[in-house]
Design a protein around this nucleic acid. Structure first.
Lengths: 228, 228
DNA sequence: GTTGCGCCTTGACTTAAGTCAAACATCAGT
DNA sequence: ACTGATGTTTGACTTAAGTCAAGGCGCAAC
């Protein structure tokens, strides 16, 4: 598939005239990252941003003593690293491939030049950044205003949107990663999953979680209920 | 002072041709909020955004059981509520005046129309959202990867940038608000301030904090050191 | 002044969640 | 099938920080 068609298929660039898509194709570079490989690290100078063509990427920070907080786990066809392009400067967090991950790379300077000529593109980016802000806001809310069982309940309900009946979640990440995404550690996650099973809120085997009591999880997320 | 000059003086709109400033003046509305008054609450439909002309505003969320997390405390001439304008939808958090606060209000729909015609304005907004994202990222980092003494140390150092010698911080918010901004409660904040004083890291009276040992605070913020 | 109301501090106690350590499961590569 | 590396669970323990309750401080209003 040629570059222009790929770009036209990315939601972020939806609705752009094909002339703009060609212009984007002109600056985009295909790159391949393998599992575990780093796109950039916190503090690196921001050269541009990426769009995932396939695979999974985590955005995270490490504390000095090694604890990891994952901010997002992103999949096809989501972009990442955009914010740093407009704030100038450097990346505020690190990005690493969780699998084989082909991406498109857009150099910041050239991309900004394109935006200068195309307000529709600018509005797409504004929408994207706003969504990111919203997601981060709920992450802060989770970390600060909910305890771990509440966070987990909210996470499970969120993952479930769509797969209505039966509400089954295929874990696409390891429980280690999931713990880090929830701002906790694997041991705690494991214990809380067990407590949820004890109370018949969920059923879990190694790779899937089934929601048995949606209402119960919602109450937990809202802090109206506590685990025994 | 007339509307156009006010707008030309807002950093967010810096560098815009005066024609654009007039256009902005055409859609802006002056409004006045008194201490404690709410601009909007989490979940309200997003009608537009605000720019503070004077005074202070807090952006925050409440948990079901009443705990507050402050996201930002904003002052002249910072904007707020912008993200919701571009994501459509509703405000993800609440905003309330901490003092007498005259503002400019920009209706979302009209503002987006202006952006469509002026990429420079779009780039300003992109820069602004990116900065916000960056700030929220460090908030997450603080909540998740640092304990309260570390957060407080980082906060004090941050507040101090500029007032080089002597490094004195005038508290512009109550310690209650400060606790909520740090993701903790007044009792804990009070205790930790005391421990910092015991170790001669800071000197604090009711309304000011003086940094005595900058290096020590940095070590604390980096997790290299613990309070006794 | 004195009353009252937020704000701030202090102490005793509780609790959620992290640490450490061990055992076990799972999976890929040899 | 064995090996080693990761991922997962469990138990016993520690600890940071929250809760509850009481008392003091400071400021504004009467």
């Amino acid at each position: 598939m040629d570059m222009t068609s790929i770009i036209a298929g990315i939601p972020l660039f939806q609705g752009l005239p094909s002339k703009q898509c060609s212009a984007l194709a002109g600056i985009a570079q295909r790159k391949y990252y393998s599992k575990g490989q780093s796109f950039f690290s916190e503090g690196d100078e921001a050269a541009g941003f990426y769009v995932i063509l396939s695979g999974k990427v985590k955005i995270f920070k490490l504390s000095p003593d090694g604890k990891e907080q994952i901010f997002h786990i992103l999949e096809t066809p989501e972009p990442f690293g955009e914010a740093a392009v407009f704030a100038g400067k450097n990346y505020p967090a690190s990005a690493q491939a969780l699998s084989e991950t082909p991406v498109l790379f857009f150099p910041g300077r050239e991309f900004v030049n394109l935006i200068r000529r195309d307000p529709a593109l600018a509005l797409s980016m504004l929408g994207l950044l706003s969504m990111r802000l919203r997601k981060l806001t709920t992450l802060v809310e989770n970390l600060s205003l909910r305890e771990v069982p509440g966070r987990l309940a909210a996470y499970l309900l969120y993952q479930c949107q769509g797969n209505a009946h039966p509400p089954v979640i295929e874990l696409d990440v390891s429980k280690n990663q999931m713990a880090s995404l929830l701002g906790t550690i694997p041991e705690t996650l494991s214990r809380i999953l067990k407590r949820m099973m004890d109370e018949n809120l969920i059923k879990a085997d190694s790779r899937t979680i089934t929601i048995l009591d949606q209402k119960g999880l919602m109450d937990l997320a809202e802090g109206l209920r506590k685990l025994g």
